[in-house]
Nucleic acid binder design. Structure first.
Lengths: 328, 328
DNA sequence: GCTGCTTAGTGTAACGTTTTACTACGCAGA
DNA sequence: TCTGCGTAGTAAAACGTTACACTAAGCAGC
């Protein structure tokens, strides 16, 4: 591979000048500049990132630390992050902790060793790995807020509210809640947003919390079996909704004929399912892109406080909620 | 961050000795060795990867180039690859081409700039990006074979055969094929394996090829609507199967009561669907792990020819195939 | 002609490692 | 005592960049 030295030799200038031209600093004449650029192109020059990194301390790589790629919300996010990053010339280094804190810690350690310029992180729990507690590098959280960090996520309260309004409009007055883990703020806000926006006369028939992975607990299965006259089941995310629909089917309960179900996330094939799932769409692409922008701003010195970027969400009406007549 | 120089100073030896100890080369005395190691630990020394990379040309990072993270088969693969890699101290750099050849090319270019030590690649089409045609770095293909490369994938022929045997056992004699793109070998082998293992007296009622992403073409929808007395539809992967089931539902056709459907891949929530999908399970974890091993072998000099690692697959019997009595 | 300023460009140290060639020392064998 | 050899360790170059401190030349103003 060609180096600056090769270019310098071919152009009859010093390596310093080549470097100056390549990083377009002002101190180079018009003619020289063009000559150097042309030769660089001819030799197919690519800067050696390792050398650059050693000299400048920047790698033009960012870390992406996710809890679980088998939850389809995250691959969509990863795709958005990777594509935006690549369009800016940034490489994405992936860590999937498989929901294990040690995995998260190891991943951070590896990322720090490789001196990534910044980290986009969807934190697992409340624990902050030592490797990142003194963050030499900017960290931007994604999807899950935490005090002291910049974060970009959806307006979960709004999502909850939209669902509550829709439920009411469709005539549902008694709902069962299959919420996500309440120690995760994004799960809590979805739930709270829903509950607060529920009008007088509507009520929560029951509530059970389960994991975001859609694997239902005994308690959840029992609640779904009994149902206690709930006409609508509001799930914490799409995976939970899918799990619920299947559990209901096992008891011979049809969706939406016998009971309605809503999800959250609008993962890609919720509209390939039977029935197509009514859910809340998050602008995943925008979220991923914004996270990259934010981390990049911080990489280039901008210490712009710990901002929050919150994105509006949208109700996607499909087939899993039935319209009740007033009498029912 | 502590450097070798710091350790050398603290231990009263030269940096060369520190380096020797750290890479446990023989020329260092017992006492010195232990002192250096102790101090390195105390100072929480981590080698500067950039400096190492510049000197040795190795980065201890590998690239993972995938066509589409929104196809749930790939995140599972990515997870396996990342976890095995991390356990070996390798960082994974992700590229998602979003099924666009330019994306693939850009990704490779970025990976080469960062001088990853090896690349695990699920190629998009038949085009080989120029960046990788002269591979200074070892490349291991995953899931999609191609002449001249090492590859690790499932035994697709076996998968096809298992499906054919199962179909026969369940009394299905007339099947419709909803195959994947036939220019991709893995799709072709699934199909061929199935067709070849079909006994006399069984027949292919019709065949349509669609993309792996589960979005059905007009032609496919028409075939599903007509059905031409096929009692079983064999889909090229789970996404296609899911799409087919929904399309059938739109025409009021129930699965498996009216027609049976099989998938391929056993992506994670095929058993959350209604009906639970009968499909072929690939050992995704093993495939990912083996790919990492293979690329690592090659990284450390082993030029072991272009081997093929082929993994057995397994039939997962669920609820989407009905047993027909002989008469039907 | 001198001063001061701008433009265009250069020489070289430095970043943190690894590695090559070398030294210094002790000791066994003759 | 000399030779040779193994052990323990060192000095310094090298990897490819960037950036600092310079210089050389041209030119305007007086």
């Amino acid at each position: 591979m060609a180096t600056v030295k090769d270019i310098a030799a071919a152009a009859g200038v010093s390596v310093a000048t080549v470097s100056n031209v390549l990083n377009n600093r002002p101190n180079a004449g018009r003619a020289t500049r063009q000559r150097v650029l042309r030769i660089a192109q001819e030799l197919d020059y690519r800067p050696n990132r390792a050398a650059q990194a050693m000299r400048t301390g920047r790698t033009r790589a960012i870390g992406l630390v996710l809890p679980d790629l088998t939850n389809p919300f995250f691959p969509e996010l990863a795709q958005a992050v990777e594509n935006t990053a690549r369009s800016q010339g940034l490489l994405v280094c992936l860590v999937d902790s498989q929901s294990r804190p040690e995995g998260e810690a190891d991943g951070f350690s590896l990322l720090m060793q490789h001196a990534v310029d910044g980290i986009i992180w969807c934190p697992l729990g409340s624990r902050v790995p030592a490797q990142v507690r003194n963050p030499a590098r900017p960290v931007v959280l994604i999807d899950r807020p935490r005090a002291g960090y910049a974060v970009v996520h959806s307006n979960y309260l709004m999502g909850g509210r939209l669902l509550a309004e829709y439920a009411t409009r469709m005539g549902h007055r008694r709902v069962g809640l299959l919420s996500g883990p309440q120690h995760i703020e994004s799960a809590r806000q979805r739930r709270d947003g829903f509950v607060k926006a529920l009008p007088k006369g509507s009520e929560i028939a029951w509530e059970v919390c389960v994991g975001f992975d859609g694997l239902l607990t005994q308690e959840a299965r029992l609640a779904l079996k009994q149902r206690r006259r709930a006409t609508l089941i509001v799930a914490g995310n799409d995976l939970i909704a899918i799990g619920a629909i299947r559990c209901l089917a096992e008891h011979g309960v049809r969706v939406p004929e016998d009971v309605s179900v809503t999800g959250f996330d609008n993962i890609r094939w919720t509209d390939l399912l039977t029935p197509r799932l009514t859910t809340i769409a998050q602008p995943v692409g925008a979220i991923g892109a914004r996270a990259v922008e934010l981390v990049q701003e911080r990489m280039s010195g901008g210490k712009i406080g710990n901002q929050r970027a919150v994105f509006d969400v949208e109700l996607i009406e499909r087939d899993s909620v039935r319209k009740l007549n007033e009498a029912s």
